[in-house]
């Protein structure tokens, strides 16, 4: 949800289809609601409702359609356009959406994206702006679990927000995380990261330092998605990559049907072939976990 031109369709196209940030310049305004379903991590279906933000549609959502729009919502993603000319009416719209959400989907999670953050060049200014939004939004958000992200389709921030959103949606995440940590220890790897196969969003990882590592992984998400597009263009679909030198080895390998795995080893004693064999050995075990969220708790 969000005003017209805020960037909802752009963000959806960059994450879930093969759009580059440049491609989004071609997008027109969304007519009414665009429904799409994405398979995520095997049997998790995400039903995404991209609600066109022009006035006539918004009126409709908040009046005649409110039960249809705000009923059965698991996640509301509200996109604030940083470049809005009327901040007050933006917040009013947000208030109205939350009011309806409170009526029909009391348990929904809310994510607020302060979008087009690339328009602010200075890093301190960026942080300040996000903090300012966060304070204002928090004040208006009562009775909901809510998080704020500064995002832009021009860098990894959009991957970061969406990784966080889907992370919360995967039911057996704790189990997957535990097993990934075990695997990391067994292979004597220094870091292991699990990516969703289609979107390359980070599903989970083994490092403790949350913010620092996430930013690094998001850059990988963006790089691999970009690279896959290039590979497609030469009719040679990407399969895997391995970078080794005297100090470290990085492996990016298809893992289960719905995931990719990234393994970093820094121990020169660990042979690459052994790491690869370990990845292969762990695969069959993770297939049960990652591709089917109902097994094992």
């Amino acid at each position: 949800m969000g005003r017209s031109g805020a960037g909802k369709t752009s963000m959806r196209s960059v994450i879930f289809t093969n759009y580059t940030a440049h491609d989004t310049r071609r997008l027109g305004a969304t007519i009414d609601v665009e429904h799409s379903t994405v398979q995520f991590m095997g049997d998790l279906s995400l039903n995404i409702w991209d609600c066109g933000g022009q006035h006539k549609y918004l009126d409709n959502y908040l009046n005649e359609q409110k039960e249809n729009i705000f009923g059965n919502v698991e996640v509301l993603i509200y996109v604030f356009d940083l470049e809005t000319t009327n901040q007050e009416s933006e917040y009013e719209l947000y208030d109205e959406c939350l009011q309806n959400l409170g009526l029909y989907s009391r348990d929904a999670k809310v994510y607020c994206l302060v979008h087009k953050i690339d328009k602010i060049l200075d890093d301190d200014m960026k942080a300040q702006t996000i903090a300012r939004y966060e304070r204002a939004i928090k004040k208006r958000t009562k009775g909901f679990d809510m998080e704020v992200f500064g995002t832009s389709i021009w860098d990894h921030t959009i991957y970061r927000a969406w990784s966080r959103i889907v992370y919360k949606l995967i039911p057996n995440m704790a189990t997957i995380e535990r097993h990934l940590r075990n695997f990391c220890e067994l292979t004597e790897a220094s870091e292991v990261v699990l990516f969703e196969r289609a979107t390359f969003l980070v599903v989970c990882h083994t490092t403790v330092d949350e913010t620092q590592s996430l930013n690094r992984y998001m850059n990988v998400s963006q790089a691999i998605k970009d690279y896959r597009r290039t590979c497609q263009a030469v009719q040679a679909p990407f399969h895997s990559m391995e970078v080794r030198n005297r100090y470290y080895s990085i492996f990016v390998e298809p893992f289960t049907k719905s995931t990719y795995i990234l393994v970093i080893t820094t121990d020169p004693e660990v042979e690459p072939a052994v790491t690869k064999a370990n990845i292969n050995a762990a695969r069959s075990h993770f297939v049960k976990l990652a591709d089917n969220s109902e097994v094992l708790q």
């Binding site: 870091e191 690094r216 992984y217 850059n219 990988v220 963006q222 790089a223 691999i224 970009d226 690279y227 290039t230 590979c231 263009a233 030469v234 040679a236 990559m241 970078v243 030198n245 100090y247 470290y248 990085i250 990016v252 990234l262 970093i264 820094t266």
Partner: peptide, 20 residues
């Protein structure tokens, strides 16, 4: 394609900045 590969390797190696 070769050029793009070099860029990608650069991006991925950034993961290990500091380990080199």
């Amino acid at each position: 394609f070769a050029c793009k590969t070099i860029d990608t390797i650069g991006d991925i190696s950034m993961l290990c900045a500091g380990l080199g």
